[in-house]
Design a binder for these strands. Structure first.
Lengths: 259, 259
DNA sequence: AATTATATTTCAAATATAGCAATATCAAGC
DNA sequence: GCTTGATATTGCTATATTTGAAATATAATT
């Protein structure tokens, strides 16, 4: 069996997830209703979270997100692993391509934006750090699935809900598997309005020196992107950026002979 | 007895607090040592937090902050961040001191007003939310510089232009550094007509429970403020307000009883 | 390849938690 | 100001969950 998880902690985070999902304030009644838990339990969790500093009480029995999350969020932004290292690479990419771009990592079954850069012009698709990109309907998501170990991918596929987003969304598992094989063979993924009718994207993987995928970079934008000429150019710029990212993260190819 | 609190949830947040306190990565061993809990328990909590999305595993048994906090932090900022929480504190302060006051955060190299309150009387210095206060010539600015990590301050100093504003403006870097040391030692900053010939201010820091400065509060106004008697009184009121702000933002000081 | 150091899992005992039912507290309406 | 209804909070105990020592697996180092 795997590591036994603590139910109480999981329950607490399901409450916090309600805030992430849109609630600004919650009462015990709301929590009990949303999470189908006993009212007393909901009450006690809210108070526990307040005691821990995660929530603050705005009125008798009414709770809102606590200010710790501003601290932790900032902490994450400051030393959030690869993000600060990838930032200059993205800035370069945005400057040369004049398209918005971002980097993701795979987290909890979907790709998550860890850094991004936007072009000079005013009109661009605004994606923020922390945004999640669905696995089956986005360039990043498909790319991660394509380069994932087979076993992990199979586990994901078993429980996956391939929700319909647009008429281009791949909603069949065999079709998705075929697409993933294709992506792996080509080395890049395209989102052809599969998640949103006006958004297109092309994404490439970043590998470490052992060949494991550690991040993904993409350019994304509206219709005009998909002109074949432009797309081919983007792909080349992305490849260069991925190479630059690898170097920035891990240094030059290991020809090291130090000790 | 009061509401029964869930120990597991509290314990989980003590782990997250370690990150807020400065750790960038933690293993089960670290947690067991820092929090004086059983190694197995530490292990299970870390994995539970990972499952909840609060942490991510960067290597076998090594955990870092997860990207949920980007979500939650942004959510908090979008709902107004600290400003609505600080507002009542400022309103109180304005009422008791009969002076205008404001709160700032540090953003892009200068202090930015995020909330303010004005006294009853009609004559006051009108500063609006969003106004930027130069770092070297204002009480808020100097306070932020004084409590900044040395490295960050040095970076700022390298490129800083200490523009002359009034005959009191500190325009020399050595002099500014000396002033900042003094401010840090005293715990408050004074603007003695350094930015505008008729404006004086006194500012104090607001800290989180880990001693990081998260905001600043000030009283400001025209000449009459600087009468020594008055200034000393203001300082005390500001100290009280800063304490109230900390409590409003983060709750009462955690008085954990470990076993 | 052997050794050391961690990470992870197992299992029975102990404890902390869930939820019912009772009570306190607040907010409207009379 | 008093009553009423709704919601927040607490007491109590069976029982599901968690705990932690020891065993085992896995990775890192010599």
């Amino acid at each position: 069996m795997s590591t036994q998880l603590n139910g109480s902690v999981l329950r607490a985070f399901r409450i916090l997830d309600l805030f992430a999902a849109g609630y600004r304030e919650l009462s015990a009644g709301d929590v009990a209703h949303e999470l189908k838990v006993n009212l007393t339990t909901a009450h006690r969790f809210l108070h526990t979270l307040e005691h821990a500093g995660a929530l603050r009480m705005t009125a008798r029995g009414v709770f809102a997100l606590g200010y710790v999350f501003a601290d932790l969020g900032e902490k994450l932004a400051r030393d959030g692993g690869a993000a600060p290292i990838l930032q200059p690479v993205l800035d370069d990419l945005a400057r040369t391509t004049h398209e918005a771009c971002m980097a993701t990592r795979f987290d909890q079954g979907s790709a998550m934006c860890i850094a991004r850069s936007v072009p000079e012009r005013a009109l661009y698709v605004d994606i923020r750090v922390g945004t999640r990109l669905e696995a089956h309907s986005t360039a990043h998501g498909k790319l991660w699935l394509a380069f994932m170990e087979n076993e992990k991918r199979d586990t994901w596929l078993e429980t996956a809900q391939l929700q319909h987003r647009t008429e281009n969304t791949i909603t069949g598992k065999p079709a998705l598997i075929q697409e993933l094989d294709h992506i792996r063979a080509e080395g890049f993924a395209i989102n052809n309005a599969e998640c949103d009718n006006n958004i297109y994207a092309i994404a490439v993987p970043v590998f470490n020196h052992h060949g494991n995928m550690v991040s993904a970079l993409s350019s994304f934008g509206s219709n005009r992107m998909i002109a074949h000429q432009h797309l081919a150019g983007l792909r080349e710029h992305l490849r260069d950026a991925a190479q630059a990212a690898q170097t920035a993260l891990y240094g030059a190819q290991p020809d090291e002979r130090t000790n």
